[in-house]
Design a protein around this nucleic acid. Structure first.
Lengths: 154, 154
DNA sequence: GCGGAATAGTTGACACGTCATCCAGACGCG
DNA sequence: CGCGTCTGGATGACGTGTCAACTATTCCGC
């Protein structure tokens, strides 16, 4: 292995700022969402994807694909959400192994109440302090990193 | 409450790309670190801060400040790391309530082996695909968001 | 149609984080 | 000194995430 290419001061600073922004931004969004709607960010994501579809019902595997989550994670999440009455599981007549996840009326009410203030928070904490150029630059940058991640690990 | 200021397509896309980059980048870094060194990212952070100081020993509260972690989180983390022999707790003679966290020889070996490949991964997955201007822009952008977070929640 | 491989989903163990609570020792003030 | 309060830190419960193992069904080739 060649000499380690350590980070210089500027890189170090960039890296720390970026990591810190991620953590604190996510924490703030989670806190607000919880306070406004008793939902966690994972709850919110699941409900968004579920209600995005006719009947608000999806096969577990389809929902997992749509969220890009692994099935085990989703299974645990569904279990917790079902316990709180946000979704229910239903058997799948076509495939004895399969299952549907369905949004309950409570779940629908929750997401409809949660979405507007959540988007507003995202705006206030993020988009409102960025210029259009910032947003473009960040998008491009993110996609370059994502490409790299893709080629790096298949 | 006024009309919700929903995200337009470009904002939506930016937001998703950014979130996805965060998640996948962190996951990739964690995976590589684990594979190379049997350390988690939290382990790594704790060891970096501890070994950054003479004697590699710190009061729990000082370490918490340095990491900007809450004391409870740190306490749990120390417990897990102590169980694996990376650090030990020591009583504080000056203050009967207090405790020191000390890096063990195993812990020191672990961080010294872990650091170079970890930095290399950060380079390969992140800095190598960014221009200097990207890095500057990201730093400024992160700091603006952090400022906003600061004023938003004291 | 039967036996083995692939698929759908659940479960259990464990790491990590947060919150609320608890406890012991230090501190401050009469 | 004595008592209330503040502080350093640990703990337990719970939500979240990963990994590995398991179950039950379907699929496929003969």
């Amino acid at each position: 292995m060649a000499e380690t290419r350590w980070l210089d001061d500027e890189e170090q600073h960039a890296w720390r700022s970026y990591l810190r922004m991620n953590k604190l931004l996510e924490a703030a969004l989670a806190r607000e969402l919880q306070a406004d709607s008793q939902l966690s960010l994972p709850d919110f994501e699941v409900l968004v994807h579920l209600t995005d579809v006719p009947d608000a019902r999806l096969r577990v595997s389809a929902l997992a694909r749509s969220l890009q989550w692994e099935k085990s994670r989703l299974s645990h999440q569904i279990a917790r959400m079902a316990r709180r009455g946000l979704v229910t599981r239903e058997e799948c007549p076509d495939d004895g192994r399969g299952a549907f996840v369905v949004v309950t009326p409570d779940g629908r009410r929750a997401i409809e109440e949660a979405a507007p203030p959540h988007v507003e928070t995202v705006r206030q904490l993020f988009f409102d302090v960025l210029t259009d150029d910032d947003v473009k630059a960040l998008t491009v940058l993110s996609e370059r990193v994502l490409d790299r991640l893709d080629t790096h690990t298949p």
